[in-house]
Each structure stands twice: as structure tokens, then as C-alpha cells.
Amino acid sequence: MRIAEMEQQHIFDGHNDVLSCLWREGQSAGEGFFNGRDGHLDLAGCRAGGFAGGFFAVWCSTDPATAPDPMAQFREFPAIDPARAHLETAAQVAILLRMVRARPEAIRLCTSAAQIEAARAAGAVAALLHIEGCEGIGAELDELHLYHAAGLRSLGPVWSRPNIFGHGVPFNFPASPDTGPGLTEAGKRLLAECESLGVLFDLSHLNEAGFWDVARLSGRPLVATHSGAHAMTPATRNLTDKQLDAVAESGGLVGLNFGCQFLRQDGQKRADTAPEEMLRHLEHLLARLGEGGVALGSDFDGALMPEFIGSARGLPKLVTAMQAAGYAPELIRRICWQNWLDMLAKTIG
């Protein structure tokens, strides 16, 4: 197959943070997504790069007064105010709801794999609503049911900070993800309720003890929407081989994070990160998880991207790099699209 043909590959992506960016920019109707914005993700860029859908995350910001240096090698984030998080979570969910109501031909809120396929066929971006760090959900889980009714189908119990449900890994290199205790009792109740509702439970950002709690308690495939291989880059945010083996045994999936510091052998947050760094991780993930267990989880609008990709517009360059490395067309299609759709059919319906 020619490179020009491969560049038309549709991509379903495991993570972006455009909703939190739009919220911080005061765009309650998501205007920048439709009209062009200074970021990784907008409608024109999605269409140019083959970005046909993905997990649209709600993420509550860290207080600037207590946030660590964003370029530091070690970053430990404190807990945030739950009252503020409740407001931010609701506001960001509302942004997506306004977007899909205003421009259904451009973006659709999807709650099943079949709806994602239908959105692609219609030429609309398929948005799966995800919450990253559940500070906006209380211990009684009332908000979980409200957001599920609004379309929520995926969540990560923690971001890289503690909350009432568990403990997230700090950003550290080189270091182990074994950084503290596991799920709290509230976290275990959250897991059980998500499985009852058909909400995917994301292991990205959860520390190792929390990961093993989920592996022990869950009957579902283990999924990390945007992570990498610790053996390739020993950052706390990446999964060890033992964790990857557990994901494989469960029939689970890992979406590769594009964040430069999680890809590079030196752990540096530098944009001059070559395609080979991404391919190292893909090769390792494929060896551990098999061809059905690896997908993409860019972290667009939430991490520093390799400059050869830059934004959603640059996704064809990653496809070309996979082709140049000898990946068969069917494997590329699975990594870019089908593996996520197969996993979502099993986890959310």
C-alpha cells in the first residue's frame, strides 16, 4: 500500500484535554474547536490529520499557587479543592454538550462502539466523554450517575495527585510507579459502580498499588488509555512489564501516550523527540500485549508533543513512520482504529 493511501487512515485516540483548555480559555460553547485555536486539536486539524474520534477528557486544574515547576524532572501534585472541582467538572461536561448540540454534523457524543462507527461514516468527530481524576465526584457517587446519564462512558479515578478514591503517580524519572497506597474503600465502590453502569475504568495515572487493586477486583479487561512502557522509559507514568503482562492476561489494552518525557530514553521534556522513540514503545507494547492490545492515546492539549507530529494535523506522519518500520497495513489499522473499537464494544457496549 502506498504512503499516500496510508495517510488517509482514520484514527481513534485514547486521550485529549481540549475540553479543559476550552474551559480555561472561557469558551463555554467550544468556539475555538470549530473556528481554529492555538492548540493541538480543532475541527480543521482533525479532518486534515484523520482524527476521527477519541476520549474527550474532563480534567480539573491544579491551583497555580501550589503547582510545581512544569519543566522539573520531579513533580508531585497536591490534592485540590473538591468544591472547585465539582464546578469545573460540570462546566467542562457542559462545553461538550453544547458543542455536539450546536454542530452535530461536525462532532457527536457517542456512548457505544456502534455510535462511533456511525459518526465516522457521517464524517463527524466521535467524542467519548471521559473524566480524568474524579475530584468532581463525591463518595456517594451521585455525580457519577448524573454524568453517566449525560453520556459519560469512561473515567480515571485519579490524576497524578491523591483524592478520596486513590493515589495518582507523581511525574518522576527515573522511578517506579509504586509510589503509595492503593484504592480507598470509596475507590473500590467507584470501580464496582462503573462496572455495573458500563463505564470504562482507566488505569492511566493510577499508582501501582491501585493498579493491582483493580486487577484483583475487576472482571473486565484492564485498560490504560494513555500510557507507555516503563522498560523503555522508566517514568512513573509508564507501566512495568509485570503490569503489561496483567493487561494482556485480562484481554486489555494500552493507548500509547505521545508526551515526550514519557517516550524519550533520557526522560526529558523536549519536543525534538524522534519517531523512533515512539516506535520503541510500540514495539515493546506489541511484544507484551499482542497486536490486539495496543492503540494510541495521544494526550493532545495535555502534554508536549514530538515536533514531528505537533498536533492532530501531524498524525499521518506517525502512520508513515509505522509503515516505514515495516508494520503491515492491517496492524496499522488496528493500532489506529480497530483495537479501540473492539475494546469499547466489550467495555461500554
Rank of each mutant, 00 (worst) to 15 (best):
R270Y: 14
E135N: 14
A122E: 12
I11D: 07
L183F: 13
G290K: 03
G26D: 09
V18I: 13
Q243W: 02
A57F: 06
L146I: 14
G182D: 07
T240H: 04
H205D: 05
L256S: 05
G45A: 09
R313M: 08
E143Y: 14
G290V: 01
G54I: 02
Q73N: 14
A231L: 04
G255K: 00
L19K: 10
A312E: 03
A121L: 11
P177V: 09
P181A: 14
G39R: 13
A121F: 06
F12Y: 10
G290R: 01
A186C: 12
N172T: 10
P221C: 05
L286H: 12
R237C: 10
A231G: 13
A149D: 13
E88K: 00
A149K: 11
P82Q: 01
P170R: 00
D342R: 06
D213Y: 04
A79N: 05
H281C: 04
G53H: 03
A124Y: 08
I95W: 11
E140C: 14
H167D: 13
G166M: 07
G26Y: 11
W337K: 06
D245I: 04
P170T: 02
G297H: 01
L41E: 10
F300M: 08
S20T: 13
I3Y: 10
A324Q: 15
S311H: 15
Q92F: 01
T273D: 11
E135I: 07
M99P: 03
V319G: 06
G32N: 02
Q323G: 12
T273C: 15
I348C: 15
H40M: 06
A175Q: 08
R333F: 09
H226N: 07
